[in-house]
Design a protein around this nucleic acid. Sequence first.
RNA 1: CAAGUAAACCGGGUGACCGCCUCGAUUUAUUUCGGGGAGGAAAGUCCGAGCUCCACCGGGCAUGAUGCUGGGUAACACCCAGGAGGGGUGACCCUACGGAAAGUGCCACAGAAACAUACCGCCCCGAUGAAUAAUCGGGGCAAGGGUGAAAUGGUGAGGUAAGAGCUCACCAGCGGUCGGGUGACCGGCCGGCUGGGCAAACCCCAUCAGGAGCAAGACCGAAUAGAGGGACAAAGGGACGCCCGGCCUAUCCCCGGGUUGGUCGCUUGACCCUUCCGGUAACGGAAGGGCUAGAUAGAUGGUCACCGUCCUUCCUUUGGGAAGGGCACAGAACUCGGCUUACAGGUUUACUUGGCUC
RNA 2: CGGGGUGUGGCGCAGUCUGGUUUAGCGCGCAGCGUUUGGGACGCUGAGGUCGGAGGUUCAAAUCCUCUCACCCCGA
Length: 131
Amino acid sequence: MVPLIGPGGAAVRGEQHLTRKKEFDLVYNEGKTWADREIVVKALPNGLELSRYGFTVSRRVGNAVVRNRVKRLLREIIRQTPLQPGWDIIFIARTTAAEADFNNLGESVRKLLLQAGLFVGEYEGVSPGAN
RNA sequence: CAAGUAAACCGGGUGACCGCCUCGAUUUAUUUCGGGGAGGAAAGUCCGAGCUCCACCGGGCAUGAUGCUGGGUAACACCCAGGAGGGGUGACCCUACGGAAAGUGCCACAGAAACAUACCGCCCCGAUGAAUAAUCGGGGCAAGGGUGAAAUGGUGAGGUAAGAGCUCACCAGCGGUCGGGUGACCGGCCGGCUGGGCAAACCCCAUCAGGAGCAAGACCGAAUAGAGGGACAAAGGGACGCCCGGCCUAUCCCCGGGUUGGUCGCUUGACCCUUCCGGUAACGGAAGGGCUAGAUAGAUGGUCACCGUCCUUCCUUUGGGAAGGGCACAGAACUCGGCUUACAGGUUUACUUGGCUC
RNA sequence: CGGGGUGUGGCGCAGUCUGGUUUAGCGCGCAGCGUUUGGGACGCUGAGGUCGGAGGUUCAAAUCCUCUCACCCCGA
């Protein structure tokens, strides 16, 4: 498998990790929203040269194990997905995300990012992780 | 072989590639190399401690907790051993298991009576009467009936007008005494025969508890607004409440404003493993060896292959093979000791009961 | 991390402190009947409850005790 180090992909932690509550609140209140059955995406331009990502999984989704797993899956998907720079993006898991596997969530995320115009390259409807 | 009891343990494995956190080297560099990276419950937060801060100490009250005995422990509501009671054919299991002659309170309905009692009754005497019938009056009794969850020792025999521990035997309970045991308690003998329940009702007795919590607390940095209001020196404050004594302190309360960034605390500890010694055991001691997660929107993940295991379907040379699907409960957040709750499947050891075979 | 609260017919609440005859009650809603030409309102009648769950104490538990589940609210 070829690692996809695109303009927006790769490292999900460090500088590209959305952490402060203020930043979260800003995206929540002023960002644009796209959604489907599993995921809600909120995004807001941040004026920087790279994009930052945050993940929200509420207690309604499941217990600590399930919530952690959903976050890890989302983080792995973002790592493998090249995205436009200059955005703060939050992924919010809905309760149905607890039952979804890696490929389902990946498809869902890429579809929403394509709608939002944040996806880089052609969307082929195929998971790059599943060869 | 079947059913069961108790205890201990595992709880998917191996490999490849791509990632995440962290430690140590290295580098101009989050560069490269090497090491480490969830659990038996990490959970619930129900107890107990360590640690930190609140200058501090003592006494009393209040409040709360514990509650058979002895031991273990830093401590405990935990653990071990023992006693008593209860359950099981048994291995074994369960128990909030101090005090009801310190006091107060409550026992609905039913019933005569739930604290002192006689409804239906039983018996004796007297009167009326033919009467050992019936009625009335006086007295005795608590066996039988009935009510109730519970009616004042139980069963049997003697005894009596009828009865009653009135007497006797056995059992239960109480008191005394002797013996055993550190003790809970057990055993023997003697005695008079002896009058409910509820303290998970108030309470009494014994023992133990100062408070707050790692967002504790320490340092660095950033930001803002206080002559705002009140209390006062025989006063006020001293980190749950009240009182007293000593001691300390110069401030304390209310309202309003700002910050909620970083580093430390943060993992070597009542730690783990092995052997030996003491102890019935919990546990303690000695020697040797080991270092075993430290995140902060919170690391431990993704994909693939093979194996293991279970289910379904199909094939079959009955040995097995193929395909598909599944593989529990659950995620460290200052650290330990427990408790409680959740948990697919599996392993080992000891023992019990029943059947069969030798 | 610490503290507090709630759970009772479909919904919102009493009753729990001080255990029992108060048939576990009230309002809204629901069903039927009456009234009306019909509907509403009104009147009458009725159905509907493992008192969140499991144990225990007691003669007796929604009520007392223990454990447990779910939800909610505070404080730092």
